[in-house]
């Protein structure tokens, strides 16, 4: 079975008035790096939160490996939210222990190797690290899991070019080959070379799901310029 994620008739309405997703249908297969692209407020983060079980759908459902979001799916989904979620008084070493305890697919040696290559001391407390370093620690923890699905919410927003290269490199060299990486971004040109597929969503609707090479071949332009065309105001 190559379907990893099934999104069926998914609708999310906040507070009975604000519709974030409307009857969305999607299938995500294994072994891909997929860009979830859309302007701000298009429903990207809502979809991601539902996949992670942080929000309940108003209607419809999502299935990951055939499971609804819950303990079974969470054991195989590695999620990088937009925010850093650490308890600031914890040491880096304690975080590694935490992940080792809770996620069976976590590889502490891999995390230690990556931390060492960035000269991050395991005995440092999170609160003594800079914002950029915290984000890198979080990425390292997330990418040190042998997950089935990596969900990265805006992994390169607001970082400098060197950090961006580091992040992209870390994603490419660490994701599990049979797994899929779903990453949302609005900085398409920075990331389109690493994508197999793109999903465009707009106002909670699916606009397009296609491979990057198809877009380049058929449209004769980059995903970034095609995106600008599709979402032109």
């Amino acid at each position: 079975m190559s379907e990893l994620v099934e999104v069926r008739n998914l609708t999310k309405v906040y507070d009975k008035k604000k519709t974030a997703l409307q009857n969305l249908n999607l299938t995500i297969t294994r072994g891909k790096i997929i860009g979830l692209l859309g302007p701000n407020g298009s429903g990207k983060t809502t979809l991601i939160k539902i996949l992670n079980g942080l929000l309940n759908p108003t209607e419809g459902e999502v299935l990951i490996n055939g499971n609804k979001p819950g303990p079974a799916s969470k054991a195989h989904v590695s999620y990088l939210p937009e925010r850093t979620y650490f308890q600031n008084s914890m040491k880096v070493r304690e975080l590694i222990e935490y992940f080792t305890d809770f996620y069976e697919d976590f590889r502490p040696e891999r995390a230690r190797e990556m931390l060492a290559s960035l000269n991050i001391n395991e005995n440092d407390r999170i609160k003594t690290l800079s914002k950029g370093t915290r984000e890198k620690v979080q990425l390292i923890l997330v990418m040190s899991r042998e997950a089935d699905l990596y969900i990265l919410d805006e992994p390169i927003a607001g970082v400098d070019p060197a950090a961006r290269d580091y992040i992209i490199r870390t994603i490419i060299t660490n994701y599990n080959e049979n797994a899929t990486v779903l990453l949302s971004t609005h900085l398409i040109s920075d990331i389109e070379n690493i994508l197999d597929e793109v999903i465009f969503i707009k106002e909670g609707h699916l606009v397009l799901q296609s491979t990057v090479e198809d877009i380049r071949m058929i449209q004769g332009k980059s995903v970034d310029s095609y995106f600008r065309e599709v979402f032109a105001c």
Partner: peptide, 18 residues
């Protein structure tokens, strides 16, 4: 409150636990 409903909640609620 912090561990359940602030940014820390993103980790708490994505643990494979009920």
């Amino acid at each position: 409150y912090q561990s359940m409903f602030t940014d820390e909640g993103y980790l708490t609620h994505t643990l494979p636990a009920t």
